[in-house]
Write a protein that binds this DNA or RNA. Structure first.
Lengths: 234, 234
DNA sequence: GGGTGAAATTGACATAAATCAAATGGCGCA
DNA sequence: TGCGCCATTTGATTTATGTCAATTTCACCC
């Protein structure tokens, strides 16, 4: 990420820039959006690929175009906590801090659209409303983080799992109600997102299956059988 | 808070507005700061007093002037998680969401400076840099929230307590190194901040005391005896 | 100074989740 | 088809933290 401009990353000029469809830029009018989009470059990442690291110079602001990105923190002994999942449309990083404070890694294959922080700032001189857009995204992320504080600090393992499944379901609302979807995270990642161990995650999945609240098939396809009852557990 | 403009709250016009000294407005030049400050009103709160509630219309953005404010979320059955502590200089609330998403309550006696969100927005028409200031504060809060996600999700009770004490110590750096300070939170509040029970908090305080890493006296005065060892536990 | 009530501590015990260890399942690939 | 590698599940056991119940401490006030 810190050498995103170097050739071996093979960046594409982002012509029909994805930000157009993202609330990210909802404060910009069409011509400003055009101009801003021209500053972006998209890049593809494979499953498990590192996107940026804690401590590295914060040169780029990203926007998830496709796939899911996990943002996580590490303790010295390797304990890991995922602090955010970036879905399409979500902002990645910030334009304030001099360094990244997190690790970001691709969950499955992803496409991410990057903007140089420096360019955003100079663009903002004539289009200051860009800051309000970014503020809006950041406020949203703060809300999610605090929701998760409640989950991590006060919910039981079962409640955590139920909340997580409902969160995933939220992101498939468009598809069609009660539609099955693929669980994008491995059990270990779910554990690192919920502050649990892999075994506890597995056991509670089994519980929910035996209670017929969910159904899992064909690898990792998940169907929520009884949405209301699941919600009651969350 | 939703009737902050009504008489019985007895608001003072904030003449020498505290925001002047807060990074909150660091993007504003002097005359703009003057103008902005004139929009503010300070209000005092007593220990335990509710400042705003989840679900109420978000009409005001606050800035903590004096004392500490706890921001928390509740589950239906009363389980509580403090998601943020607001120290002097910290922003309270946001200018994006239509409603408050949290409860805010005074920890000890506090003074808070309020701005109407609507006025901030109209002020921003001629001073758009205000958005960058608020973005900066919000990004900082997001960083703290995510740091706490790591704590809640992955740290042991002992590590949580140690981290908490170091956090408090951070806010007394100015006073003088190794200076004792008053623990502003009750045990129950500490528990609700760390995702623990009051008994676990108490036991680990006792542990740390018997290990001579900290000393507590005269009610709730705390002295960190061995800073480095405490840090090693965090 | 003694009484009152809230807050904090301490003890005994229960339990949810972690840990350790095996077994099973799924999938690419020779 | 079967081997090998992960990921996942399941089981047995331990442990950190929660729960329930006294007891102690402390601030406040008459």
């Amino acid at each position: 990420m810190n050498n995103i401009t170097s050739n071996h990353y093979n960046l594409d000029k982002c012509n029909n820039c994805p930000v157009r469809d993202l609330s990210f830029c909802n404060a910009l009018d069409n011509s400003a959006l055009e101009e801003f989009s021209a500053l972006s470059k998209t890049k593809s990442f494979q499953d498990g690929q590192l996107i940026f690291s804690e401590g590295k110079t914060n040169e780029y602001l990203g926007s998830v175009v496709q796939g899911i990105v996990k943002i996580y923190k590490l303790l010295d002994d390797g304990r890991q906590q995922i602090v955010s999942l970036g879905f399409p449309g979500d902002m990645l990083g910030n334009i304030i801090d001099p360094e990244y404070n997190y690790f970001a890694e691709s969950v499955g294959d992803t496409k991410i659209c990057f903007y140089q922080v420096a360019r955003i700032n100079s663009f903002a001189e004539s289009n200051p409303e860009i800051y309000r857009s970014i503020l809006s995204k950041t406020t949203e992320q703060l809300g999610h983080a605090r929701e998760w504080l409640l989950l991590l600090g006060r919910k039981t393992a079962q409640e955590k799992i139920a909340s997580f499944l409902l969160l995933l379901a939220e992101h498939h609302k468009g598809d069609s109600p009660d539609q099955a979807f693929k669980i994008p995270l491995k059990r270990q990642e779910i554990a690192d997102f919920l502050g649990l161990t892999i075994e506890t995650v597995s056991r509670h999945f089994s519980n929910l299956k035996s209670k017929q609240l969910i159904r899992e098939y064909a690898g990792h396809m998940l169907a929520i059988v009884d949405y209301d009852q699941l919600k009651a557990l969350a």
